[in-house]
Design a protein around this nucleic acid. Structure first.
Lengths: 126, 126
DNA sequence: GCGGAGTTGTAAAAAGTTTGTAAAAAGCGC
DNA sequence: GCGCTTTTTACAAACTTTTTACAACTCCGC
């Protein structure tokens, strides 16, 4: 009876400086040019974009885009991420972050990126 | 009788003047900048921080972070402590104390370091 | 203080794991 | 079959963790 946690969030569309996704019409544009996405590519992008800023574990992506359970071992997710990145061109890694050991995260164009190399061995504290 | 919580107390977050740890999202920030921690580094830091002010014996750390029993001889704990300290930069030894022959202890930023036999579960930070 | 046994610190190598990638194979609709 | 999409395969590259080897330090009795 417990209703599933809303798996279809009602966002009509996403848009930032370069990328736009129309979820009702199911297509995306990059710098105003329509991106030719295949079905799976779109599904993957849409899921990532609908959770912009959140880390989505591989498990979750495989389950929600492919219906795969945890027992299935495949590299198809990686391949699709790669194709998406390719089609995102120069913005590839700006938009799609890899969270090592966990999954992926879509970041809106201007979102602050927390990762920085190494904290400088700063000056001593007395 | 209030039912005693099990040994795993769920504190939502920790924060002091410089360090913050979000246990539900599993990340830490140092002076508002996100610390890039690997999983094991995070696990170790989280366990220490959740027991701030308490000495945690090596045995306990090895058991709870690595699942190792007393028979296993390894220096991986020391190496991980070292990496954590490195990432804590100037605050390294302010936060992570070595208790010779026993283990380690995380101290909140302002906690005084005195000779006390058994430091009580230190009062919350202001 | 001094020395030794045991403990911890550290850098670097080795080992283990995860992700990236190209190309081939498999699947699907026409 | 043909063209397109998706999955698998096989290996490379990137990243994380553990081990190794030795230096430095602490404790304790003398």
């Amino acid at each position: 009876m417990a209703p599933e946690p809303t798996n279809t969030i009602q966002i009509p569309a996403y848009g930032d400086e370069h990328l736009a996704v129309d979820f009702s019409q199911q297509y995306a544009t990059l710098d105003s040019v329509r991106m030719p996405l295949t079905r799976k590519e779109y599904d993957l992008l849409a899921l990532l974009v609908q959770h912009a800023g959140e880390i989505i574990p591989r498990d979750a992506l495989l389950l929600r885009v492919w219906g795969y359970g945890a027992e299935i071992r495949t590299r198809t997710l990686d391949v699709h991420v790669r194709r998406l990145r390719k089609k995102l061109g120069a913005y590839a890694d700006v938009y799609i972050e890899t969270i090592f050991g966990i999954g992926y995260r879509f970041q809106p164009f201007h979102a602050p990126r927390f990762f920085q190399s190494e904290p400088k061995p700063a000056a001593a504290v007395a």
